[in-house]
Every structure is written in structure tokens, then in C-alpha cells.
């Protein structure tokens, strides 16, 4: 596979508010629960997956430094769109001044939709249909109060502006590989507010099987081994799963140093592996190789292999880094969290 396309700009966004897992546990289990993350991000009362996608997209545009009217595709992956029917892509495209000749779509594949958006836009660029396109993974995920998902379901977005392949760019998308089976580990039926999941079934047959299959499939096709990568990013529904996936595949903890953020921000769903990638780009050196493997329930994994380009150092400081967004945090208690999430009936 020759390189598909390049990332010419990237941006992440994490809402300002955080709730600690122990605060959630205080309310529901009297503090007995062992928390899968330390804390998670919470969107403000005027935020949704569209507004945080806008923030990330604007930072990506700022880093790319191109005229927004040159952007001809906007693919948004999310499982928490503000509308059941009515795209977010149109609003963001208008708000940022993208071309009206636009391939725009909202996509859903649980937490995998963000990486699939990247692959789709890269394919449009690679095929010559467009020159520049944007892919966004964004979610303001909700768990049923008291459900174990509530400890991790967080909010975040990351956007990537993709253009023709070039070593001068921020990173080059070298190889992609996707692996999908019908595995119902997590779902939300039409009209339901909160998702259902299958507890431990989510692990072995779902998360691990797909992540490992996609990662191995990509490495086999591309002729690469774990040690060929400087950085690896896995979908991160908690801290333990990605660490275990890395172990099983033969990656060392230092390769995951920048790609694992869920302990501090929770599971940002379609944005999770993308924010990990953004943090790698904030820190990586030109020439370094990166593997990103997402996982979406239902189920499937996308694996993307990238090489960091010369351009990364020039654009890094043009927008806030992931570290800054993680550090910009304000703790809220459970009552305020309920208010911000619109869960207090008035």
C-alpha cells in the first residue's frame, strides 16, 4: 500500500469540567467501587458533541493554516449526536466556512467512527476526489446513572485535516486495515437514552479480539512488527484494557506513553484513540512511526499506521496541546454533574 494521504493539521478538545470516579462511587456504592479511571471529563451545560467537534476542528484548521473554503469533505464520527436526525457536519461546515461543495456525513460505529472517518477522508484524498478534507471523532457519552459505564463515559473530540501525501506534512497515513464481525457487546436501541452492555463479554470476544485482529492484520500486510513503532494508541474504555492489549500484542509500556489518556479524561468514545493520536503528534519527532487501533462495539477495529512528518514541529504550537486541555480542568460534584448533563428535571 502506498501512503494514502497526509495529516496537515490536527486539533483536540476536552471540556473543562471533570468528575472523579470516587465522587460517582460515593453516590452509588458508598465508595466501594474500584474505579476504572481516576476521573472523566464532563461537558458544560451548553456543550454537545457538535460544539466540541467545532472546537477541535478549529484548532486543526489553525494548525493546517489553509483557507477553510478549500475543505471539501467533513466526516464526523459520533455515537452521541445532538439530533437523531439532522447532521452535525452541516453546522460545523457552515460555522468554519468550509466549501459548500462538500462531502459531508455523520457516521456511527460506536467508538470506532472517528478512525473510520479518517480512513474515509484519506481515501477521498487518495483517490483524487478532493484535495482537503476533515475527519472528526467526537462524543459526549452518557452512562445510565449508577451503571459501570457512568464512571468512564466522557466527552472529547479530535479533528484531523487531511490532504495529499507529503513528507512535509504533520504525518503521513501509510497503511490502514479494518476488521469487523457481528458481536453485540454494547448497543443503544432507537429512542433509548442510555446504552446497554454485556459486562465481561465486552472484553475478550469484543475489545481484545477485534483490536488484536486489526493490529496483527495491519502489521502482517505492511510487513511491520511491534518494535517498528515508536508510539501505539489503542481505544481506551478504561486504563487496563489498552495496557493489556499492548501486552498481548508485544508492545512495551514506553510505546504507549503518549497514547493513553483515559485515566485522566475517561473514555471519550469516538474521540478516544484520536485524542491519543493528537497527544502523540504533540510529542513525537519527525520520522517516528505510530500505530493507532480503535475499537467500536458491534464490533470492529480500525488500525492506522502513520509516519510523523517534518511539518509537525511547525504547527504544534499554533493551537493548545492535549496536555494543556487535560490540565485545564475544574472538578464538579455529582449534583453539578447532573445539572450540566441535563439530568435534573425542572
Amino acid at each position: 500500500m502506498k501512503p494514502l494521504a497526509s495529516i496537515i493539521g490536527y486539533g483536540a478538545y476536552i471540556p473543562r469540567y471533570r468528575i472523579e470516579a470516587k465522587e460517582i462511587s460515593r453516590v452509588h456504592t458508598g465508595g466501594a467501587e474500584r474505579a476504572p479511571v481516576r476521573q472523566k471529563s464532563v461537558p458544560g451545560p451548553d456543550e454537545d458533541s457538535l460544539t466540541i467537534a467545532y472546537e477541535a476542528a478549529r484548532y486543526a484548521l489553525r494548525r493546517a493554516g489553509i483557507d477553510p473554503s478549500l475543505v471539501e469533505a467533513l466526516y464526523i464520527g459520533s455515537e452521541s449526536p445532538p439530533y437523531a436526525v439532522k447532521p452535525s457536519a452541516t453546522v460545523i461546515a457552515e460555522a468554519l466556512g468550509f466549501s459548500r461543495k462538500l462531502y459531508g456525513i455523520d457516521m456511527e460505529f460506536a467508538c470506532k467512527a472517528g478512525t473510520t472517518a479518517i480512513i474515509s477522508v484519506a481515501a477521498l484524498v487518495s483517490s483524487g476526489v478532493i484535495r482537503y478534507g476533515m475527519a472528526i471523532g467526537t462524543d459526549t457519552a452518557q452512562g445510565r446513572p449508577g451503571d459501570e459505564l457512568e464512571y468512564t463515559a466522557a466527552a472529547g473530540a479530535a479533528a484531523f485535516l487531511i490532504g495529499p501525501s507529503s513528507p512535509e506534512a504533520v504525518a503521513t497515513i501509510d497503511h490502514v486495515y479494518s476488521y469487523v464481525t457481528d458481536t453485540p457487546d454494547f448497543w443503544r436501541r432507537e429512542g433509548e437514552k442510555y446504552p446497554m452492555h454485556t459486562f465481561r463479554f465486552t472484553g475478550e470476544p469484543a475489545y481484545f479480539h477485534h483490536i488484536i485482529s486489526a493490529a496483527r492484520g495491519l502489521m502482517e500486510e505492511a510487513g511491520l512488527k511491534p518494535e517498528d513503532f515508536d508510539h501505539v494508541v489503542f481505544h481506551q474504555p478504561n486504563v487496563k484494557f489498552p495496557q493489556r492489549a499492548g501486552e498481548l500484542l508485544g508492545f512495551k509500556p514506553e510505546q504507549m506513553k503518549y497514547g493513553l489518556l483515559s485515566g485522566e479524561i475517561g473514555n471519550t468514545y469516538a474521540a478516544a484513540s484520536l485524542i491519543g493520536l493528537a497527544n502523540v503528534l504533540d510529542n513525537a519527532k519527525p520520522g517516528e512511526r505510530v500505530l493507532v487501533v480503535s475499537f467500536g462495539s458491534g464490533a470492529g477495529s480500525d488500525a492506522i499506521s502513520l509516519t510523523v512528518g517534518e511539518g509537525v514541529e511547525k504547527v504544534r504550537d499554533k493551537a493548545p496541546t492535549v496536555a494543556k486541555l487535560v490540565a485545564r480542568s475544574k472538578l464538579v460534584d455529582y449534583a453539578l454533574y447532573l445539572r450540566y448533563r441535563g439530568m435534573i428535571l425542572r
Binding site: 451548553d46 456543550e47 454537545d48 457538535l50 460544539t51 467545532y54 472546537e55 445532538p82 439530533y83 439532522k86 453546522v91 460545523i92 460555522a95
Partner: peptide
């Protein structure tokens, strides 16, 4: 870009 108000429970969201 943020939500300013919604046109009730069923109406559009105004950004």
C-alpha cells in the same frame, strides 16, 4: 460555538 437555547423539547437547537 455553543448552544444558546433550544426551541422546546422537540424543536431545533440554536447555536
Amino acid at each position: 460555538l455553543r448552544r444558546y437555547r433550544t426551541q422546546g423539547e422537540r424543536g431545533i437547537i440554536e447555536y
